[in-house]
Design a protein around this nucleic acid. Structure first.
Length: 550
RNA sequence: GGUGAUGUAGCUCAGUUGGUCAGAGCGGCGGACUCAUAACCCGCAGGUCGGUGGUUCAAUUCCACCCAUCACCA
């Protein structure tokens, strides 16, 4: 059923530019990328944006440590990000940086609008200050003894041992992580956003956004606790945008980071005639806006961000899609166990399609965590992708190529079966749309089982010995190839590279989602070459070994 | 500590608005086949559905508490 063409803008969360992309990040980018590829395959105008999140204290300090400017550091890191993304098949329509002129203008505009409507006020707060380094210290940069349980060397915001939360001022014997000196308390004037004013509007937005149940539960919890105003400023020195009208105040990184979505899009609009900024970012248009995020940053995306957008006269997101965290072999990623696996390390040993499929096979729309079990990974990928799916083509192509010069039959052998495969398109599309990737994968693999069973029952290898039955052999194998083709189209969003090779093997120019409804008959196909190889245990072992060392 | 989510066969996960709901895939075991990247096909497997109480004629599915894991506490 052809849908009306939609105009959709999608973002992934902006990776923070002080480290490398790892397997945990990839859950998010692959989830978003699969959705985008699906929408594009369906013929919708779908724009995919992202950027490096470059502001804030950690980047500033890391650059200082490396003897670089923050700009140079984040440029280097971004170049690395882009190579990793690209090699995993994650291609953005625009990948930008939050340290851009567009972003500075937008943040300034938003701030002025909010201030004009009375949503911004200043208040003096007391904060830890490192006299030796001449700077205010974020909570994470103060360590000391937990005032409740007495555990030493705890961060300034919470105790890892007893879970208590507090402020750095509560710590016993606090020290600055930067200089080792004892921080002093010092007053500073900060800018606050009146989030408390937005409760009703946020509740309304929450209703319209159709958020996942568990996300709503979390939001309800926050509403219950009462919305607190948000401190949106930081003191110099800070890498960020200076607040207009001040000399030493900067916007907190979490204010300008989400605005970076809009800025990245604005940057893209400048070179694309078919995209209009206002159509996607001002109220009153039919466009859709979605953010894929991790469950750890829901607060920013479901409270601050929609509130800021509303207050500043922008449209709010159509919805926000939150996902869970990655564990490896059932535990948090760990360097010593070799399970802190960087994207690049993975690519040194394994094919991106393996991971793309494995994540898809386990991803749903909820904020539940996802486990990358390395043994299961190899077994699942080998069985599903190689043993079931690619096998269908592999076992049929030989006959077509050797016995019929690569020519497919003019008619299908089992049209009712073909109709069932084609008929699954709507259900599978619905699963993709709702981000029920695991259900989509299960559906596809159940069909792959059927296809293998069909070939097994027909036994073309037996018929091939009898000249009289050659037509049937051709028809059966043509049928098998078409079942394979149908499933490959369904999997295009997940394993685009493999799908492309399959398409070229079938000598087709282009695939649209609806192509699954029209069988390929009478044409010629190329010699079959393995579309994907198995995951060898040794590759996984080597990857883990390398992760321990880096 | 508070709050939210999760806890089902060796592994990864479905499922139940309470009563054929104890399931799938993988692994394992047995068999068959040889077209296929030792792939594919057929059959078998019996896990107190995290623990303890409670509600009910009946709970894995509802409630309470506890334990474990993940996250958040701005």
């Amino acid at each position: 059923m052809p849908e009306k063409s939609r105009k959709i803008l999608v973002s992934n969360a902006l990776p923070y530019a002080n480290g490398s992309i790892h397997m945990g990040h990839l859950v998010e980018y692959l989830q978003g990328n699969i959705w985008i590829r699906f929408q594009k395959l369906r013929g919708h105008q779908c724009t995919y944006i992202c950027a490096s999140d470059v502001h804030g204290t950690p980047v500033m300090l890391k650059a200082r440590e490396m003897g670089l400017s923050p700009e140079d550091l984040t440029e280097r890191v971004t170049a690395e990000f882009l190579r990793d993304f690209s090699d995993f098949g994650i291609e953005f329509d625009n990948y930008y940086t939050t340290h851009s002129p567009e972003n500075e203008v937008l943040v300034g505009e938003i701030f002025e609008t909010l201030r004009a409507s009375g949503d911004i006020y200043t208040k003096t707060i007391e904060q830890a200050y490192d006299v030796q380094e001449s700077m205010f210290l974020p909570d994470r940069f103060v360590r000391g003894t937990c005032p409740r349980c007495g555990t030493s060397d705890q961060y300034g915001d919470a105790c890892e041992n007893c879970g208590a939360t507090y402020t750095p001022a509560d710590l016993i014997d606090p020290i600055s992580v930067l200089s080792g000196s004892t921080p002093v308390k010092r007053d500073s004037e900060h800018y606050f956003f009146r989030l408390s004013r937005y409760e009703q509007r946020l509740r309304d937005w929450m209703q319209s956004a159709n958020l996942e149940k568990s996300v709503v539960a979390k939001l309800e919890e926050w509403f219950e606790a009462g919305l607190q105003d948000w401190d949106i400023s930081r003191d110099a020195p800070y890498f960020g945008f200076r607040i207009p009208g001040t000399n030493d105040k900067y916007f907190y990184v979490w204010l300008d980071a989400p605005v970076g979505y809009a800025a990245s899009f604005k940057n893209l609009c400048a070179r694309r005639d078919d995209l209009d900024f206002d159509e996607y970012w001002r109220p009153g248009h039919e466009t859709e806006l979605y953010h894929f995020i991790g469950k750890d940053i829901m607060y920013f995306h479901t409270l601050f961000w929609p509130a800021v957008l509303q207050g500043a006269g922008f449209r709010t997101p159509t919805s926000v899609f939150a996902h869970g965290f990655l564990t490896v072999n059932g535990q948090k990623m760990s360097k010593s166990r070799g399970t802190f696996i960087k994207a690049r390390t993975y690519l040194d040993h394994l094919h991106p399609a393996h991971l793309r499929y494995y994540y898809a096979a386990k991803l749903g729309p909820t904020i539940e965590d996802l486990d990358l079990n390395l043994d299961d990974f190899a077994a699942r990928v080998n069985s599903d992708l190689v043993g079931k799916l690619v096998n269908i083509a592999s076992r049929c192509a030989g006959f077509i190529n050797k016995r019929f010069d690569g020519q497919l039959a003019a008619e299908l052998h089992a049209p009712e079966m073909q109709a069932r495969f084609a008929g699954a398109a709507d259900a599978i599309a619905d699963y993709y749309e709702r981000r029920e990737y695991s259900r989509a994968m299960r559906t596809v693999m159940a069909l792959a089982d059927e296809a293998n069973r069909y070939i097994d029952e027909q036994k073309p290898w037996v018929m091939a010995r009898d000249e009289q039955q050659l037509d049937t052999v051709q028809a059966v194998c043509t049928q098998g190839i078409n079942l394979f083709r149908c499933l490959m189209i369904y999997l295009t969003p997940v394993i685009p590279g493999v799908a492309e090779d399959a398409r070229s093997f079938l000598q087709e120019q282009d695939w649209h989602w609806d192509a699954a409804g029209t069988p390929l008959l009478g044409t010629t196909i190329s010699p079959f070459r393995p579309l994907l190889t198995r995951v060898e245990p040794e590759q996984v072992r080597n990857m883990v070994e390398q992760s321990k060392q880096s």
